[in-house]
Simulated scan of single mutants.
Amino acid sequence: MSPAVFIDALQNELQHTQYGQHPPELYDPIRYIMNLGGKRMRPLLTLMATYLFTDDWRKAVRPALGVEVFHNFTLMHDDIMDQAPLRRGQLTVHEKWNGNIAILSGDVMLVNAYQLLLNIESDKLAPALARFSRTAAEVCEGQQMDMNFETRWDVTEAEYIDMIRLKTSVLLGYALELGGLIAGADEETTRHLYEGGMNIGVGFQLKDDLLDVYGDPTKFGKQVGGDIIANKKTFLLIEALQQAKGSVKDELTDWLTRTDFDKGEKVQAVTSIYDQLGIRQLTEARINDYFTRGFANFDQVKADSDRKNVLIQFARQLVERES
């Protein structure tokens, strides 16, 4: 089975899904953000996980879309909190409409996510909704931790990993777990799927941190060095703060506390500090460790090898991305 078949099924469902009509100010922003594109990796993972165990994978399309609607709800509210002007190269909802509309439309998206998940067969619905509710709360917990880190300079590696696990990885894990649940896989199998998604998700976020500093600007899709300019607590900065000593630490502290600086000069200077401390190599080692764990989890899933290969190859594309 080609991933294109899953993508076509999702796109068709996206085009025919109704979120509501009146008042249009409430529902137009939902259609807007859902049509901005994106990788759609979470619903694709759900469909691929369902296909591992059944030919009737299409019964997972609407629940998978529920996962995508929830993901975009979190993006809409994140953009408000970050006061971000653009999302995927287009105006964010709060910029195109206003903050109050973006909050309320996001609230309705969360309701819509639950409505789409109600398309799961009745005997599997309760555990799927219970796990989704826990996952949704964990995503919020991760976002709060990320905001807390903005005013702290003593964030540890363990705290940071826990934050990205909650903010990013649990939804990837749930997307895979949901596919297994819908297909009727046993508890051990769904656990391997969930943990595989979790580990791949942590590696995915760490790679995003790395690409922000060392990515190819023509491929990365956003400004390289943006995290450095904003003093964002990424894995790279946390490790540098813990390892820097003497004059290197003084130089790093100076750049982090400046309020007036040339952006390009700051990116170059902090990147040079990362190079001196071997932060790139350390980050790459952590990324490879989490990806290795994720694929080991997938190896434990008992399913047809050809079907499992569809999932593994898609995961490898995520691992090898440069943008």
Rank of each mutant, 00 (worst) to 15 (best):
L178G: 09
R165S: 13
G184V: 12
L210V: 11
Y174T: 00
T189S: 13
T189N: 09
I182Y: 07
G180N: 05
S169K: 02
G179M: 01
K167A: 00
D216N: 15
G197T: 10
M198D: 15
F204I: 09
D186H: 09
D212S: 07
A175W: 10
A185K: 07
D208M: 01
I182Q: 10
T189P: 12
V170N: 02
L166T: 12
L166P: 10
Y174A: 02
L206N: 08
Q205D: 02
I164A: 01
L211S: 02
T168W: 01
L211D: 04
L211Y: 04
L178F: 09
E187K: 14
A185S: 09
I182V: 14
V170E: 04
K167V: 00
Q205P: 07
K219E: 11
K167L: 02
E195K: 15
D216Y: 12
Q205G: 06
L193I: 02
L181K: 11
L181G: 14
L171P: 03
E195T: 15
G197S: 04
V213C: 06
D186S: 09
V213Y: 00
L206E: 06
G184N: 09
V213A: 06
L193M: 08
D209L: 06
D212N: 14
A185C: 09
D186F: 05
L193R: 06
R165H: 12
E195V: 15
E177A: 10
T168N: 01
G180M: 05
